[in-house]
Amino acid sequence: MRRSVFPALVTLLVLVFLLSPLAVLVVNSFNASRFGGQWEGFTWQWYERLREADEVWAALVVTLKIAALSSVTAMVLGTLAAYALHRHRSWLQTAHGALVTVPLVMPDLLMGMSLLAFFVSTGVELGMTTIWIAHVTFCVSFVAMVVLGRLQDFDFTLLDAARDLGAPPWEAARRVLVPLLLPGILAGGLLAFTLSIDDYVITFFVSGPGTTTLPLRVASMMKGRNLPMINALSTLMIAGTFLLAALAFRLQRGRA
């Protein structure tokens, strides 16, 4: 049988398309040239400067804190929302379902502005709390969608079986429903985590003067023409992402 070269060619093109910007970025992070136009020799200096840039690390800590908090909150609320949506059919749940999908389709700009208007009118001080709340509002939808997918395959007679064997309702949920939904909940949580780390537009509106997340910091560094340091930071983030992905992959393989 003749093997077609077409699939291989497409794969190659996609990889080139996806990876070449990253490659340029990584290479430039070691480039002594300040503007990255051409290669002027290998250097660690951008990494050293980055190490001393305390405001970047402070922003990273804030970002991770918010991401962790919002993803955990979204995991809890999203799972509950998905359960309610799956189990109960009524006009209220129809409305609920529509509301849950709104953040998936609404432009970030609108979300950010409306949240800002809301916080200002309710007099909540802008800062960590408002960013956290804002992130939860869109993360919940993603978690709910992923968990809803898992619930489609869940056999609810398992809960009957648990009740039958002496488990009160909450115990049945804890020992049967939650463990079986957990892969979905975690996947949703991971998605929420990355979305939260990543978010610029909404965070831009609802962050106070004192709180800066990493995307906001990077953006302001761009204005300051601090390109090589951003390259260095991005390279570290790429490395971190690959490490996490590899870890997740290993964990998944271990379970199956």
């Binding site: 007679t157 009957d160 079986a161 648990a162 009740r163 064997l165 009160p168 049967v176 079986l180």
Partner: peptide, 20 residues
């Protein structure tokens, strides 16, 4: 009485074994 408080147990048609 709720099912968890009845001294009655069931063999379900599709077995309903806990897969995990």
């Amino acid at each position: 009485l709720p099912p968890e408080r009845r001294p009655v147990n069931t063999v379900f048609q599709n077995y309903a074994l806990f897969p995990h």
